[in-house]
């Protein structure tokens, strides 16, 4: 996996050019499609390592492209969208997208999302280590600067789920369903409470979270601090 291949499906030539330059100069290979039909065909033919999919394609609704891809394609799909509305984003994530970027996006952000999507996909791990925070999923323990942190079962499950999907956004609904069960999807107050409690226990400054980052209106993202 030295030079992962990325399929870009976007009808805007400017964006394709920008993505091509950004990705090539960071050792990714790219193939490009300018509409949904071509994109679906190229995905089938090349089976790329990751797909960047623009939601606003001229010939087909982005969500339906996403669904068609997800019928067989299991590797990461990152959505590009000009709409910053949470509803669109949540809908895309619910339809199988791994992550999203709202145009205009920063190149650094794009690369970080691509890398973490690829990493999460290829390297399952049972120990997550991020600047002093160690989560051992086989022993179910969490250490902060070598001190054991006492977490309740729910707090641990929530943290482990976020950390396992490090770098990727998890929607409120997804977290509620996975941790509390399908009956709790609308009980977002539980999630708010447990996130606040977790932050108090693991963050140096709970109000300036470094590990569990808020994605406005969408969900939460566990961020790995790599320069530690």
């Amino acid at each position: 996996m030295s030079h992962p291949q990325i399929l870009v499906i976007d009808d805007e030539a400017q964006i394709r050019k920008l993505l091509q330059i950004t990705l090539h100069s960071n050792d990714f290979r790219t193939i490009e499609a300018i509409h949904a039909k071509e994109g679906l065909a190229m995905a089938k033919h090349n089976n790329p390592d990751l797909i960047l999919l623009d939601l606003g394609l001229p010939d087909e609704n982005g969500y339906s492209v996403l669904k068609k891809l997800r019928e067989w394609y299991t590797k990461p799909i990152i959505i590009l969208s000009v709409q910053s509305g949470e509803e669109e984003i949540i809908r895309a994530l619910d339809n199988g997208a791994n992550d999203y970027l709202v145009k205009p996006f920063r190149s650094g952000e794009l690369l970080a999302r691509i890398r973490s999507s690829l990493r999460g996909f290829y390297t399952p791990t049972n120990q997550i280590n991020s600047s002093g925070l160690v989560i051992d999923t086989s022993l179910r323990i969490v250490k902060k600067d070598s001190t054991l942190i006492k977490l309740t079962a729910t707090e641990y499950d929530l943290l482990a789920l976020l950390a396992k999907n490090e770098g990727r956004v998890l929607t409120h609904q997804y977290l509620l369903r996975e941790i509390w069960g399908p009956g709790y999807i609308s009980q977002s107050q539980y999630l708010r409470v447990f996130i606040a409690q977790l932050r108090k226990k693991i963050e140096a400054e709970p109000n300036r979270p470094e590990y569990i980052v808020t994605e406005s209106g969408v969900g939460y993202r566990f961020v790995l601090n790599e320069n530690s």
Binding site: E86, H172, S188, Q189, R192, N207, R208, T214, S216
Partner: peptide, 17 residues
């Protein structure tokens, strides 16, 4: 408006961030 529960602490620090 899409009303859902949230913690004002989060909003404030989201804004400052």
């Amino acid at each position: 408006p899409k009303h859902d529960w949230f913690d004002m602490n989060e909003v404030v620090h989201d804004v400052l961030n």
